[in-house]
Amino acid sequence: MSSSFDLLYTDTEEELRSAVRALLTDRCDAARVLARAETGRPHDPELWHTLAVDIGTAGLLVPEKLGGLGAGHREAAVVLEELGRAVAPVPYLTSAVLATEILLGCDAREATELLGELAAGRQVCAPAVPLTLAPGAPLPPAVRDTGGGVLTGAVSTVADAVAADVLLVLADTGLYAVPAAEVSLTALVPLDLTRPLATVTLEDAAGTRLADSATARAAVAGALLSGAGLLASEQLGLAQWCLTETVRHVRDRHQFNRPVGSFQALKHRLAQLWLDVASARAAARAAADALTTGAPDAPLTVAVAQAYCSGVAVRAAEECVQLHGGIGMTWEHPAHLYLKRAKADALALGTTGHHRGLVADFAELPSP
């Protein structure tokens, strides 16, 4: 692997973090997330508008000449850290990362125009691919083009389709932008209530062609790599919240006239969790930096980050629930939101086993 990774946060990244955290602290507290999750429509359009437009995070990956901020994956990773810390119900990963990366891989004028709309926060776009689709895995059978960009087919487990204005559909003849009004959605019951899933059904839906089949598949493959690498930062933020909140609880909670956290067994568990989170930060930052610089070993770095950060996020959430005792099992406490997001993220964009297999392949070692 490259030895030139810069894992430290720059002043600009810390300023971006402060802005996003302040917004989420004010507008995305646990009570509000729980209340929206109960409705089955967790997305908060006003929160998304402030995040995407006022702070400008929707255009971080879009070059300035196309209407974006011309930043990079490191800045997007900081945003995802904070969104993971708050389990924020916004379509950032799907629209500002996956859809944006796909469009950047297309050279059609229509793709450029749509990129400008996404960067300005005027539209939300979701790729019509299964959330579980992993980098390096075969792409699923394409939707059928019956002629002239009229599409027929169905795609299951599409994330954030309910919040999208436009869907990017991979058909047998290329990539198409399809208005949400042209498709029908069947809501699925997700484990993670803050990231809704749906089956997208197209019946003679009219789409605008953005790329031919070969270009489209290359663009989707590149987007999956970036998405998996940046998902590690969301998992890092999630794990960090679980660690911080658990330490606070065991310090304040008393049994036998002593803080629960003073018991040696709990100290050891939390110390190990701190080490895990610190290592996850290094892995996630390395992946973001490799994507930003276009490092040749970016696929390996991303696979390492996902293979490690998924497990850390799940362990941190499980420890949070368990060490909170009875209150950690209740609906009113947000710990279950973090556990469900961690479990769902462990399946998104490739399982831990898939990414470990990639690491083995890249290192030319037998797969585990």
Rank of each mutant, 00 (worst) to 15 (best):
V189D: 15
V220I: 14
A111Y: 09
A288K: 08
A265I: 15
E101C: 14
D11G: 04
A31F: 05
G227P: 02
R341D: 11
C242R: 05
G311I: 07
A232Y: 00
R32F: 06
V53W: 10
E364Q: 13
L300Y: 10
S310G: 15
L133R: 01
L16Q: 09
V143C: 03
A228I: 01
R341V: 09
L60A: 10
H333I: 08
L83K: 00
L197V: 05
V124A: 13
G326K: 07
T208C: 12
K343T: 12
L61N: 07
L365E: 14
A344R: 12
H333M: 06
V314T: 10
L185W: 01
L51T: 06
L114C: 11
A307G: 11
A282Q: 11
V220E: 02
W48C: 06
T25P: 00
V314G: 01
L103D: 14
D29P: 05
G40V: 11
W331L: 14
R269I: 02
I102Y: 06
V247F: 04
T330V: 09
E13Q: 15
A99P: 01
Q240N: 06
V314C: 05
L270P: 05
A221N: 10
E101R: 15
H43K: 03
A298I: 07
L104R: 12
T57I: 05
A317Y: 07
A58G: 07
A22T: 14
S18E: 13
A360C: 04
L83G: 04
P190S: 06
A216W: 09
A295T: 05
Q306W: 00
R17F: 00
A205T: 03
A37N: 14
G136R: 00
H354N: 02
P259K: 11
Y176T: 13
G84Q: 01
F362K: 01
D26P: 00
P130K: 01
